[in-house]
Nucleic acid binder design. Structure first.
Length: 365
DNA sequence: CATACGTGGGC
DNA sequence: TGCCCAAGTAT
């Protein structure tokens, strides 16, 4: 198995930016970015990241706001925060050198079993498994494993099967070969079995069951959440607020507002939310846009209104409350839904920054 | 063990 | 359009 995969990998490996190095910091960053994220999506982020934070020390020295800005649009933002914290940990505890000890690597924030295996095998040549979704699929098909791969017991079984076939001399290449095979040949929908280097060893294919494997339970439907947000402008500046340091979209910026309780109108809810959050009375005005955004586990239905601070009350700037020139919004990390919102409610502004904002807005009203 | 945690692309 | 999927981790 290993020989076949390594030969295939030597001939067919994709030329990816993080494969032109074995620097543990570079491998680490790439692996965190690749968690639950496509290679094509990651590539430009990885290139920008390495230009902006060329070394572990540069990352450790950077303020969190800039780290989040560099991650803006990639999603799962705790990855960036954990990577940042872990970089600081490596500088503090290991003098800036990524440890090659399995326990030390695995104890770093944001590094779980898969990522630890990937870093150890790719950067340090350690013969340990790195079992991701691709590997689960490839192995489940190869051995015609019909157990649910969401089960811990099934994952353990697959991890041990992989462990037993890792070649001592090229563990990193082997793990990446397994993942590349899953990404390019042994794909979820229509596996290209005729191109597979191990097709004659595949029990799933022999049984004609390859497209039924792996077995995985269906995801729960996301919960619907009603939200309201205010566009409050004054002298060319827009009022924005920073989200809490924990939970959904932690530490990112957004328009002031919040959840609309069941049975309450969005305008009324908005007025209450802003009174509590900003300590100011606002007059809620014209309805500007509705934007729907789907997260993994919930759906936001966001209703946007223009609003004004009632004369006589003030909204003071704080660490998490800012009046920002609309053409300077690009300095702040916003979640994807707010880029949609800005396209709708600030259509004449060069918002977003960094070249990541989609300029070809859908013109559905 | 189940759930929280983003986003964009493919069919 | 809706659903599934993508190099998972933390709690």
């Amino acid at each position: 198995m290993a020989d076949r995969l390594l030969d295939w990998y030597s001939a067919s490996a994709r030329d990816l930016p993080w494969r032109r190095t074995r620097d543990p910091y570079h491998i680490w960053v790439s692996e965190i970015m690749l968690q639950q994220t496509r290679v094509e999506t990651v590539i430009p982020y990885y290139e920008r990241w390495m230009a902006r934070f060329p070394t572990l020390e540069a990352l450790a020295d950077a303020p969190e706001e800039q780290v989040l800005k560099a991650w803006e649009g990639l999603g799962y933002y705790s990855r960036a925060r954990n990577l940042h914290a872990a970089a600081r940990e490596v500088v503090a505890r290991y003098g800036g050198t990524v440890p090659d000890d399995p326990d030390a690597v695995a104890s770093l924030k944001g590094i779980g079993p898969y990522t630890a295996g990937a870093i150890l095998s790719i950067a340090f040549n350690r013969p340990v498994p790195a079992v991701d979704g691709n590997v689960l699929r490839v192995i489940a098909r190869l051995y015609a494993i019909v157990d649910d791969i969401a089960q811990l017991a099934t994952r353990r079984t697959i991890e041990e099967l992989v462990r037993a076939m890792i070649p001592q001399d090229r563990p990193g290449d082997f793990n990446q070969a397994l993942m590349d095979l899953g990404a390019t040949i042994c794909t979820p929908r229509r596996p290209r079995c005729l191109l597979c280097p191990v097709r004659d060893l595949c029990e799933g294919r022999r049984a004609g069951r390859e497209t039924e494997l792996p077995v995985k339970g269906r995801a729960k439907a996301p919960r619907l959440v009603e939200r309201a947000a205010a566009v409050i402008e004054r002298e060319g500046r827009l009022l924005i607020v920073r989200r809490p340091q924990e939970g959904l979209l932690a530490g990112l910026w957004e328009l002031p507002g919040g959840d609309v309780p069941p049975g309450v109108g969005p305008e009324e809810a908005l007025q209450t939310l802003l009174r509590n959050a900003l300590g100011a009375e606002v007059a809620v005005g014209e309805h500007l846009a509705d934007v729907t955004h789907v997260f993994s586990h919930l759906v936001w239905h966001l209703r946007c209104f223009r609003a004004e601070v009632v004369p006589g009350t003030e909204v003071a700037e704080r660490a998490d409350v800012r009046w920002v020139k609309v053409d300077a919004l690009g300095a702040y990390p916003f979640p994807a839904i707010y880029h949609k919102v800005f396209e709708r409610v600030l259509p004449h502004t060069a918002h977003g920054g960094g070249g990541r904002t989609r300029r070809n807005a859908q013109d559905r009203g």
